[in-house]
């Protein structure tokens, strides 16, 4: 891999102490064939311009830190190969729909609040003591929620969602998917406690089904599906409780 290819990388810069609006800066980076976009950013930081700020950690697509817009699409920069863009230029911006803190770093406190609001933990009417051993859960029951437990909180889906962009109260794809994950878990009994957040106007009913969240999700969580399932389930339950008020027990 001694090929010496050079790629142009344009990065959105925002230094809140110096400027009121973002600017852009272009770097030329000599890269190796197996480099990802994040490697180029690190190369810039280490050897060209130490003032460029961005988040990263695992470089293996699992910590969820390094989501950015790459040529207009939300991507994990540690999983986006440079060679897939070459010889075109690469343009890197912070994830859209979030306020920019600095350069490629966004403010994600809004998501952290929403995550907590959907109560993403096992809720039981009565907790089983540890001494009585594990809850039994069959592979089929595991499969019921497994996909929704794969979320790495990378925020790509929020960046892809025009509804979240226009309406910040929207609980949003990942948080709903995670709430749904617990609702589907055979060990959980907390669906009622989550419902007022998830099945609310700011929850599933805000979603107009663009479906882009599921397209960009690097872990195939398919949050759109979580939302759709909840819509159908909530509607059927309401309908059931209307026609059979005596038999309502979800």
């Amino acid at each position: 891999m001694s090929d010496h290819k050079t790629i142009k990388i344009t990065v959105l810069r925002y230094r809140p102490e110096e400027e009121d609006a973002p600017t852009e800066q272009t770097y030329e980076v000599e890269f190796r064939d197996d480099w990802v976009v994040l490697d180029a950013l690190n190369h810039i930081k280490d050897h060209i311009d130490g003032t460029l700020s961005f988040r990263w950690s695992c470089r293996m697509g699992v910590c969820g830190s390094c989501g950015m817009m790459v040529n207009g699409e939300p991507k994990l920069t540690c999983a986006a190969m440079l060679r897939d863009y070459y010889p075109k230029e690469v343009r890197v911006e912070p994830l859209v729909n979030f306020p920019i803190v600095r350069d490629l770093v966004t403010d994600m406190t809004d998501f952290m609040d929403k995550l907590k609001a959907v109560k993403p933990w096992i809720i039981r009417e009565e907790e089983k003591p540890v001494s009585e051993g594990e809850y039994r859960q069959t592979p089929d029951q595991l499969k019921d929620y497994k996909q929704f437990s794969q979320c790495i909180n990378c925020m790509l889906c929020y960046a892809a969602c025009p509804v979240y962009g226009l309406e910040h109260d929207f609980v949003g794809p990942a948080a709903i998917a995670l709430g749904h994950r617990y609702n589907l878990d055979s060990r959980d009994e907390g669906i009622q406690q989550r419902q007022h957040v998830i099945a609310s106007k700011e929850g599933i009913w805000e979603c107009t089904y663009v479906g882009e969240c599921s397209v960009v999700c690097p872990k195939h969580v398919d949050p759109a599906e979580a939302i759709q399932q909840t819509k159908v389930a909530t509607t059927t339950n309401r309908f059931k409780s209307l026609v059979m008020p005596w038999g309502n027990k979800t």
Partner: peptide, 10 residues
Amino acid sequence: TKMQAAGRGL
């Protein structure tokens, strides 16, 4: 179809 895929179909 979205009601179905996650293994937990409705």
